[in-house]
Design a protein around this nucleic acid. Structure first.
Lengths: 195, 195
DNA sequence: CGCGCTATGTTTGCAGTGCTTACATCAAGA
DNA sequence: TCTTGATGTAAGCACTGCAAACATAGCGCG
C-alpha cells in the first residue's frame, strides 16, 4: 500500500474512484469525473475505463448508498426489543431512515433525487432489496392484513419526511427533535388502529 | 409583440427567461443559462442582468412551480363534493399532488430536489404558502385534534409517494393506477380512525 | 434641446466539465 | 519472445457558469 507502489497501473482504481466520490459527497463538495480522478491521483480521463459515463459512476455510488441504508435499517431492527409493538418498531425504522438521509444528505439525494436509469441493474436490484426489507417487516408485524398498501404508505411516509427535512421544510436538527417528529408522525397515523 | 420590435432592449427579458426555462423543463431538456438565453434570442450572458447566478434562476422557477402546485391543490379541493369525508378529501389532495409531480417531473425535482437556499425569500415564502394550504384543510377536517403531526404525516405521505413514483420505485403510469395507489395508501393509514 | 445617468444587452475571455479519439504502458499467455 | 487485451495518458471538442469591459437605449434634468 505504499504510495505509488506501481507507477502506471493503479491496482483497484474503480474502488478508489467510488471511495473518493463518496468522500467528496460526505464533505459536501459536488464531485466530477475529473475531480474524482484528481483525488485518486490519476489522469482526468482514466475513470472512463471503469465507468462508461457519469451516470454509471453515480449509479455505482447509489448502490453503495442503498447497501448502507439497508444496513442502517437492519441495525435499527436488531436493536429494538424483541417484543416491541408495531408502532414502536416502525417508528424506529422511520427514525433510522430519516437520520440516514440527514447524516448523508448528498448521498441520499443521489440515491433518490435523480432518475434511476433502468440500465443499471445493480442499482435497481439494490433498491429492490431495500424495499424487500420493509415488506418483510410489515408482513411480520401485521400478519393477515393487506400489507402492500401499508408498506407503500409507510415507505412513502418515511421517504417524504426525509426529503422535507432535507429541503429545510422542517428543521433538520437537533437530531432528537427530528426523531420525535418522525415518531409522532408514525403514531399519529398508526397509533389508533395498530396499537 | 412583433418579433424584434426593438433590437436592443427586450421588453421583459426576465419573464421570457423564466418561461423559456419552464418550457425546456417541460420538454425534458435540462436548461442552462446559455440555452435559456439562446431560446429567448439574447446573448449568452444577458440573463445575468436579471439573475445573479444560476441558483437565482432556479429559485425563480421553483416559485413558479410552487404557485402552480398550490393552484392544482386548490382546484382539487374545489371540485370535491362539499360534504365529502376526510379520507376522500385527503385522497384527492394526494392524487393531485402526485399527479402534479408526474406531469411535471423536472419542475417538481427542481422545487424539492435540491437545497432550498434560504437566500431566496420568495422561494421560502412560496413553499410556506403551500404548507399553509394543507394545514388549513387538515384543521378544517379534524377540528379539535392534534393537527400539526397529522399535517406533517400527510404531507410526507404525499411527498414520498410522489418521489417514489418519480424514481420508478412504483410504476408512474397509467394515471388511474397511480391515483388508485395513492388513495389506497391514504385510506390504509387513515381509513380506520378517521372514517 | 442636449447632457449624462442608469438599466439593460453584448463581447470577450477564463476555468471547469463530460466525453471522444489516438496513443502509451504494462501483465500474462501463446 | 511476441502478441494481445486491459488499463492508464494526452490532446482536443463542445459545452457550461461566470466575470469584466464595453455598447445601446431611454429617462430626467439643466
Amino acid at each position: 500500500m505504499s504510495t505509488s507502489a506501481r507507477a502506471y497501473h493503479h491496482g483497484d482504481l474503480r474502488a478508489a474512484l467510488v471511495e473518493s466520490a463518496v468522500e467528496m459527497l460526505e464533505a459536501g463538495e459536488a464531485y466530477s469525473m475529473r475531480a474524482v480522478a484528481r483525488r485518486a491521483g490519476v489522469s482526468p480521463t482514466a475513470p472512463y475505463r471503469h465507468f462508461p459515463d457519469r451516470d454509471a459512476l453515480d449509479s455505482a455510488i447509489a448502490v453503495e448508498g442503498f447497501d448502507d441504508l439497508r444496513d442502517a435499517l437492519a441495525q435499527a431492527l436488531g436493536s429494538a426489543p424483541a417484543a416491541a409493538g408495531p408502532v414502536d418498531v416502525l417508528g424506529e425504522l422511520g427514525v433510522a431512515y430519516v437520520s440516514f438521509a440527514l447524516r448523508r444528505p448528498a448521498l441520499f439525494r443521489l440515491m433518490f433525487g435523480n432518475e434511476c436509469d433502468e440500465e443499471s441493474s445493480d442499482r435497481v436490484q439494490a433498491s429492490q432489496a431495500l424495499h424487500a426489507v420493509l415488506g418483510d417487516v410489515i408482513a411480520r408485524l401485521f400478519p393477515g392484513r393487506v400489507t402492500p398498501e401499508l408498506a407503500t404508505a409507510l415507505w412513502s411516509l418515511a421517504h417524504g419526511l426525509a426529503f422535507l427535512h432535507l429541503d429545510g421544510k422542517y428543521r433538520p436538527e437537533p437530531a432528537d427533535e427530528v426523531a420525535g417528529r418522525v415518531r409522532a408522525a408514525v403514531s399519529a397515523l398508526l397509533g389508533l388502529n395498530a396499537g
